[in-house]
Simulated scan of single mutants.
Amino acid sequence: MATVKEIIELAESKMHKTTDVLRVDLASVRAGRATPALLEKVMVDYYGTPTPVNQVASVTVPEPRMIIIQPWEKNLLKDIERAIMKSDLGLNPNSDGAVIRLNLPQLTEERRKEIVKTVHKKSEDARVIVRNLRRDANDAVKKAEKAKEITEDEAKKGTDDIQKMTDKIIKEIDNIMANKEKEVMEI
């Protein structure tokens, strides 16, 4: 069976993956300024395969409130426009036949608060995942102790270490959330 150290390392690895996923998830949440990450979840039908926009076009941000998308193949222009319209971004693409321009309007206070609620929900989901990982790691330590693979002292130290690591990761999630909330609420 696994040692306490292996159990902790596995749990820590999974917890860090959770924070990485949260960062990526929150990067695609629209804040006040334009960023190519907004389009990461927008999928275009590329020869029958759903493909992210940034893999079929160059995405640039020439101004704080504008994104320019230049498809590598002209025939993808309409497909990219359609994919943006279907997405939950709420943006209207403007095409001149060569590039697509996305103008990001100023966010209203009400919309900012809705976005902050979304950020909080995603962060809470990440916290729940981390807590579940803590529970699984603690269960593995107790199981190893019950099977007499580790001593009672090792089990106690293991659960303490798991709790410290969980607290650290939860604090990291809170920092990620606070930074995104600040970014959204800035005018």
Results as ranks from 00 to 15, higher is better:
Asp88Ala: 11
Asp88Asn: 14
Leu89Phe: 05
Leu89Met: 08
Leu89Val: 03
Gly90Asn: 01
Gly90Ile: 00
Gly90Glu: 07
Gly90Ser: 02
Leu91Tyr: 01
Leu91Ser: 02
Asn92Gln: 15
Pro93Leu: 07
Pro93Ser: 04
Pro93Gly: 06
Pro93Ile: 03
Asn94Ser: 14
Asn94Pro: 03
Ser95Asn: 10
Ser95Leu: 09
Ser95Trp: 03
Asp96Asn: 14
Asp96Ile: 09
Asp96Thr: 06
Gly97Pro: 11
Ala98His: 15
Ala98Phe: 15
Ala98Val: 15
Ala98Arg: 15
Val99Ile: 15
Val99Glu: 14
Ile100His: 04
Ile100Cys: 01
Arg101Pro: 06
Arg101Cys: 08
Arg101Phe: 08
Leu102Glu: 00
Leu102Phe: 00
Leu102Gln: 03
Leu104Lys: 04
Leu104Arg: 02
Pro105Gly: 06
Pro105Tyr: 04
Pro105Met: 07
Pro105Cys: 03
Pro105Gln: 00
Pro105Thr: 04
Gln106Ala: 14
Gln106Tyr: 12
Gln106Pro: 11
Gln106Ile: 14
Leu107Gln: 01
Leu107Lys: 04
Leu107Val: 01
Thr108Phe: 07
Thr108Pro: 06
Glu109Arg: 08
Glu109Gln: 10
Glu109Asp: 12
Glu109Phe: 04
Glu109Trp: 08
Glu110Tyr: 11
Glu110Ser: 11
Arg111Ile: 09
Arg111Pro: 08
Arg111Ser: 08
Arg111Val: 07
Arg112Ser: 03
Lys113Met: 12
Glu114Lys: 09
Glu114Asn: 11
Val116Phe: 00
Val116Asn: 00
Val116Arg: 00
Val116Glu: 03
Val116Tyr: 02
Lys117Tyr: 07
Lys117Ser: 11
Lys117His: 10
Lys117Arg: 13
Thr118Leu: 15
Thr118Glu: 13
Thr118Asp: 13
Thr118Phe: 09
Thr118Arg: 11
Thr118Gln: 13
Val119Trp: 07
Val119Asp: 03
Val119Thr: 06
Val119Arg: 02
Val119Lys: 01
His120Pro: 07
His120Phe: 10
Lys121Gln: 15
Lys121Arg: 14
Lys121Met: 11
Lys121Glu: 14
Lys121Val: 12
Lys121Tyr: 13
Lys122Asp: 05
Lys122Phe: 07
Ser123Ile: 02
Ser123Gln: 01
Ser123Asn: 02
Ser123Arg: 05
Ser123Ala: 12
Asp125Tyr: 00
Asp125Gln: 12
Asp125Pro: 05
Arg127Val: 08
Val128Leu: 09
Ile129Val: 15
Ile129Glu: 15
Ile129Pro: 10
Ile129Lys: 15
Val130Arg: 00
Val130Pro: 02
Val130Glu: 02
Arg131Lys: 11
Arg131Leu: 07
Arg131His: 06
Asn132Lys: 13
Asn132Leu: 11
Asn132Gly: 14
Leu133Ala: 07
Leu133Pro: 06
Arg134Ser: 08
Arg134Gly: 06
Arg134Thr: 00
Asp136Ile: 05
Asp136Asn: 12
Asp136Trp: 07
Asp136Thr: 05
Ala137Asp: 02
Asp139Lys: 13
Asp139Arg: 11
Asp139Val: 05
Asp139Ala: 11
Ala140Cys: 10
Val141Arg: 02
Lys142Cys: 02
Lys142Phe: 08
Lys142Gln: 09
Ala144Cys: 05
Glu145Leu: 05
Glu145Phe: 03
Glu145His: 04
Glu145Trp: 00
Lys146Thr: 04
Lys146Gln: 03
Ala147Trp: 01
Ala147Lys: 12
Ala147Tyr: 04
Ala147Asn: 12
Lys148His: 10
Lys148Arg: 12
Lys148Val: 08
Glu149Asp: 11
Ile150Cys: 04
